[in-house]
Design a protein around this nucleic acid. Structure first.
Lengths: 264, 264
DNA sequence: CGCGATCTTTTTGCATTCATTCTGTGGATT
DNA sequence: AATCCACAGAATGAATGCAAAAAGATCGCG
């Protein structure tokens, strides 16, 4: 019943990826230092501003997994009263970023491995759709642009530059989604991407050298299908690509889980 | 001073005196008949109850397309104050059911033909995914159940029973989505289905005899692929099936638009 | 008679207040 | 000593209050 929302929600500045920045949670660090001097940056209609700010705040990992969302503190941090904050929380709950327990507040939603499995598959489905639609309408110029980024990505791959590789990778996927020319799809995609972004599977990708090479080959296939405008084929490839990504992520996730158990 | 709020003390402002004065403005036909005696049916946590109730209220078409969502009247109808109602509105806006214009309230989101195109394609993508996933895990029993409904549907088709046919059709699609075994997908699917449900394209399907027969054949193909657990193939079929549905809907939509123009 | 400015009424957005529920601590009982 | 209960403090959920914006009405003017 927690209806998975999908669109209408602002994509939010997805860009900088998930790696690095994640200071390890726990201490919530609601710094008085950065007291959000600006009246909630930009955006239309204040509420949207707050919503986006809060979403980023959570997606960027400022709150630990499963941690309670401190209503009071956030009010102070953003300089607003509880009413608009709670409205934003309801929306984030509907988006699936947090859980809202009756009478005991909001907690950052922690994704079980089952949740991850589901999310990856849905992402796969959305990307498969994006690929199919993109083949119907993408221009040669757009394909060329994607090829460009693909080559950049290849260079990063050769140099074993994880960060650069990852940026390009994200960019390519985003470009394909955009090329689909379907705003509803883009919004839905952004939502799920945000949900999954909290998970730090990527940082360890370089431990999975095999997977990395495999991923490169898959991207070659993606480009090839895109060039030929082979929608149905690309659809399959995209889904499989995400499936493989999922497997790698699960693998890493399990390893981390073991690690965690060991250190405990 | 029609508004009871102005009094400083305002002891339980229940009722009727104020309703009288607002009749003129209304026109919205918030039926006095069904005055929502129940304390918001079922569900946990009141808020969810209200949310579901409001969603149904809108999805079922009680408010005209593009109509303003009358905050005060709804508050009375559901017997709650504005705070929880507004929270629900934010969520519905995030779901894409209504638009929230800054400082000028909520309106029922009217779907442009472009929106419909996008929605149908996304639904197609989700159903394609559902079919693919279903093939991975569906049991023979589940396939048999779907076959059962399929045969029922066929009978309705032969008898030209639109209503029964439509019911079975919906049921089959829902069963496939469920068979995918992905709760996230189910929730997302339900969300989009709700959005699209406001459009009543189906009623005129019987005018499109060709499409009806074609749809039956497509369903045969769906079943066939499902039996063979041919995921990738089923994925294609599902997407195409929705594409064709979209075309039929657009066709009808245009016809209705013309009709509307003519009568004007 | 039409058009626009100004004033009133209504609506919206947010803050504040109030009632209820939860949480955590201390004490009494077994 | 451990368990259970009671109570104080804090939080959550919802209602009310208030300032500002929009919609509507009234009136003056061309």
């Amino acid at each position: 019943m927690p209806c998975a929302i999908s669109t209408g929600t602002a994509p939010s500045p997805s860009d900088d990826m998930m790696t690095a920045t994640m200071l390890d949670s726990a201490d919530v660090d609601l710094a008085p230092e950065e007291s959000r001097s600006e009246p909630l940056r930009g955006s239309a209609s204040l509420h949207d501003g707050l919503l986006a700010a809060l979403r980023d705040y959570i997606v960027e990992g400022n709150l630990a997994d499963g941690a309670r969302v401190p209503e009071r503190l956030l009010c102070e941090k953003f300089g607003i009263s509880r009413t608009p904050l709670r409205e934003a929380l309801k929306v984030l709950a509907a988006e699936g970023l947090i859980d809202l327990l009756p009478n005991r507040g909001a907690r950052v939603r922690s994704l079980s491995s089952e949740d991850l499995r589901e999310l990856f598959d849905v992402m796969g489905g959305l990307e498969a759709l994006a690929g199919r639609l993109a083949c119907e309408r993408i221009s040669d110029e757009e394909v060329a642009q994607i090829e460009q980024v693909h080559h950049d990505m290849y260079r990063f791959y050769i140099r074993r530059d994880m960060h650069g590789y990852f940026q390009c990778n994200q960019a390519i996927h985003r470009m394909i989604v955009e090329a689909a020319g379907n705003a509803t799809l883009s919004a839905t995609y952004a939502n799920f991407a945000g949900r999954i972004r909290r998970v730090r599977y990527s940082a360890n990708l370089d431990k999975e050298r095999d997977r990395w090479g495999e991923a490169m080959r898959e991207h070659e296939a993606i480009l090839d299908a895109l060039r030929r405008r082979a929608g149905s084929e690309l659809s399959d490839i995209m889904f499989q690509h995400l499936r493989n990504k999922r497997k790698a992520a699960q693998h890493i996730g399990e390893a981390q889980a073991l690690e965690g158990d060991a250190s405990r």
